[in-house]
């Protein structure tokens, strides 16, 4: 399970705001948070940058 949701809430962002910052639809953020879609490396990097973290913390195991 990825930690996008918890990092997003820590930053005080809504799904819509995060989606706007990384230029995707809100639905895509929802799918990523629920592990229903595997985003591309490029999108992962963008999300990590917006949430001020690194890929390993966001998408790594544990």
């Amino acid at each position: 399970m990825n930690k996008v949701k918890s990092y997003r809430l820590n930053q005080g962002l809504t799904q819509t705001q995060l989606a706007y910052k990384v230029n995707v639809a809100r639905q895509t953020i929802s799918l990523i948070e629920n592990d229903k879609y595997n985003p591309s490396l490029n999108l992962c990097k963008q999300i990590a940058k917006v949430l001020h973290t690194d890929l390993n913390s966001l998408f790594g195991g544990n």
């Binding site: 230029n23 995707v24 639809a25 639905q27 895509t28 799918l31 985003p39 591309s40 999108l43």
Partner: peptide, 8 residues
């Protein structure tokens, strides 16, 4: 309509 992102 709207953003045509990688998922779409």
């Amino acid at each position: 309509e709207g953003v045509l992102d990688e998922y779409k």
